[in-house]
Design a binder for these strands. Sequence first.
DNA 1: ACATGGATTCGCT
DNA 2: GCGAATCCATGTT
Length: 205
Amino acid sequence: MKLKNDFFNRDALLVGKELIGQYLINDSNEGKVVGRIVETESYCGTDDLASHASKDKSKRSKPMFGPAGHFYIYLNYGIFYMTNIVCDRVDYPAAILLRAVEIIEGQGIAAKRLRQSKFVKENKFLATGPGKLSIAFDISKSENDLDITKSADFYFEKNPKSILKSDIIKATRVGVDYAKHCKEYPWRFYLCNNEYVSKQQKSIG
DNA sequence: ACATGGATTCGCT
DNA sequence: GCGAATCCATGTT
């Protein structure tokens, strides 16, 4: 069952947590790539100094202020695209960064895409980090602001098998040392003992 | 116009 | 734990 607007149109921390275990799907003409989400980070509000929206609405962060269920895609380090899914109500900036998935279908397609990026090493870890995830799912700036509740190419599907609450680890977000007190926020979620979670794992219980 | 720096990844120490 | 690769968006002249 596809996840619809009502799933995403809620508090970003709740959505970030509940996205763990759900499926991200890219249905392309090359074939289908399916990933089980194992790591996310929430960014929300203008008070969150780690969020692009903290400097108020700019041309870049505009999708974060729009309706839930749209992609927010941007280029980082001049190299990697970051894939976010907008949540919560219109005019309240909130999004979930998809940091890692375990690819369970279409590994060959994902591997082929990754091979074309000279910054990614080829191995079985196809989407263990936000940059690699975007390449594996062929997500780039043309997908920015795409409504994934309407798109036939990109969508989320509910995993009928739910994840134990105790298997979801809370942690601090990665790469936001500049964000003053906000860098301590436990707004990162990942699946306990899963080898496809990206490497940095400072759990805070 | 120009300067700045980053929601990363990999490889080496 | 640290540095390099790399380039766009943003903020500042």
